[in-house]
Simulated assay, not measured.
Amino acid sequence: MKDQLVADFYGYENLLPDEEHKILLHARSFMREEIKPIVNEYWARGEFPTELIGKFRASGLVGLAYEGYGQHEPAVSHLLSGMVYMEMSRTDASVATFFGVHNGLAMSSIYFGGNQEQRDRWLATMATMDKIGAFAMTEPLGGSDVAGGMRTTAKRDGDTWILNGAKKWIGNATFADYVVVWARDAEHHNVKGFVVEKGAPGFRPVKIGGKVAFRIVENAEITLTDVRVPEANRLQNINSFRDVAEILRATRGGVAWQALGVMIGAYELALDYAKLRQQFGRPIAKFQLVQDLLVKSLGNITASWGMLVQLARLQDAGIFRDEHSSLAKAFVTARMREVVAWGREIFGGNGILLDHDIVRFFTDAEAIYSFEGTREMNTLIVGKAITGHSAFI
């Protein structure tokens, strides 16, 4: 058997062929050597370590899933892509989110929403991280209802579009070179996607401060005031929100993998701590109640991992649907919430100290639980699929 994580109780990693498993081990080594030593410092400062961009560029991990544009040919399986994202999140969810926004949301918007010329124009430099991407959909007054209530508008003016509105919680936006902005056509009312390039007049991103989760991520609130975007920068294959949903379906599954990584990271920390922490003259790992928390955590991890393996198989077969990714996101993030709470409980008072790492996982889990569709919204997607009745209002 291949080397595997202590949390991989059923040996899911062994489903990867040897070549893909080597890539996963490379991602594990990269996160351990390049990322882990610096995350607490930047988390405490609430800043993104820009030197990581060059390190990611050299890692060869960007664009693995994009045929013809990634640093690995042919494109890898969805199972490996998911496990790589899990591995990043196992070390730090903020850094994984930076990667996921660029490599997932932004690149997939262009890969699936752009025509061949647009893919060639933007994706090669994004795959090498010479250019960084962001994805701007959520608005200050619109979250779950953004599909039907998007307030940002795009008005056609000859060969250009004029964008007006605001976006919020946009990761990477303070330094991104390309921001995929979603706006409603002022004339036809359907949603369109635009690539706004860095420095465009009227485009103003302001970093959001005061966060207690994802502190390393540079989330921004964006104002768009008469931002002119050429027709050549409109994603040509996006004609409605239904097309956008095709992109979100895949990225929502990615968030479930991220939640699994957070669970594993928290479990590993708690397990190690339980073996070392002495109370009443013996390690707390000998206490029945501590073992109960650890076993419940491992059960959540194992069940979630099994669900995501099958989700990846459905993706690779091209037959997965919205309700598949929605069930995974809703279920796995709920299990993650339990595991990080149990992990912090095992640490006792030390669980609120950054030096012990667990507090990062505990707070970051709250953000993961909410974004890419809340549990309630994903539940309604699955509910409609299994009953045939929509409960959306």
Rank of each mutant, 00 (worst) to 15 (best):
Lys2Val: 14
Val6Cys: 09
Tyr10Asn: 13
Leu15Asp: 09
Glu19Gln: 09
Glu20Gly: 05
Ala27Ile: 00
Met31Val: 01
Met31Ser: 10
Glu33His: 06
Glu34Cys: 02
Lys36Pro: 00
Ile38Phe: 05
Asn40Gln: 13
Asn40Asp: 12
Glu41Gly: 08
Thr50Val: 09
Glu51Cys: 01
Ile53Arg: 10
Gly54Arg: 09
Ala58Asp: 15
Leu61Asp: 14
Val62Trp: 10
Gly63His: 07
Ala65Gln: 13
Ala65Lys: 11
Glu67Ser: 05
His72Asp: 04
Pro74Leu: 04
Ala75Val: 04
Val76His: 12
Ser77Phe: 03
Ser77His: 01
Ser81Phe: 10
Ser81Met: 14
Gly82Tyr: 04
Val84Tyr: 10
Glu87Met: 00
Thr91Arg: 03
Ala93Asp: 11
Ser94Ile: 07
Val95Ile: 15
Val95Ser: 11
Ala96Gln: 13
Ser108Thr: 11
Phe112Met: 15
Gly114Leu: 05
Gln116His: 11
Thr125Ile: 03
Asp130Leu: 03
Ile132Ala: 11
Met137Cys: 10
Leu141Tyr: 03
Val146Lys: 10
Gly148Ala: 11
Thr153Trp: 04
Asp159Ser: 12
Thr160Asp: 15
Ile162Gly: 04
Leu163Ile: 04
Asn172Cys: 03
Asn172Ala: 06
Asn172Leu: 01
Asp177Val: 02
Arg184Thr: 06
Arg184Ala: 00
Arg184Gly: 02
Asp185Lys: 03
Asp185Pro: 07
Ala186Asp: 13
Glu187Arg: 00
His188Trp: 04
His188Ile: 03
Asn190Ala: 14
Val191Leu: 15
Gly199His: 01
Gly202Ala: 13
Phe203Ile: 07
Phe214Trp: 11
Arg215Met: 04
Val217Pro: 08
Glu218Leu: 01
Asn219Cys: 06
Ala220Tyr: 03
Glu221Met: 12
Leu224Cys: 07
Leu224Ala: 12
Leu224Phe: 09
Glu231Phe: 00
Asn233Arg: 08
Leu235Ile: 03
Asn237Pro: 00
Ser240Asp: 10
Ile264Met: 15
Gly265Asn: 08
Ala266Asn: 08
Ala266Val: 04
Leu269Tyr: 02
Asp272Val: 04
Ala274Met: 02
Lys275Tyr: 01
Leu276Trp: 10
Gly281Val: 00
Ala285Val: 09
Leu289Trp: 15
Gln291Asn: 12
Gln291Val: 03
Gln291Tyr: 05
Asp292Arg: 13
Lys296Ser: 15
Lys296Asn: 14
Ser297Asp: 14
Leu298Val: 03
Ala312Gly: 06
Gln315Cys: 14
Arg321Val: 05
Arg321Ser: 11
Asp322Gln: 15
Glu323Ala: 11
Glu323Cys: 06
Ser325His: 06
Ser326Met: 11
Ser326Ala: 15
Ser326Leu: 10
Met336Gly: 08
Gly343Ala: 09
Glu345Asp: 14
Leu353Asp: 11
Leu353Asn: 14
Leu353Trp: 07
Glu366Arg: 08
Ala367Pro: 00
Ile368Pro: 00
Thr374Ala: 05
Asn378Val: 03
Leu380Asn: 08
Val382Ile: 08
Gly383His: 06
Ile386Glu: 03
Ile393Val: 12
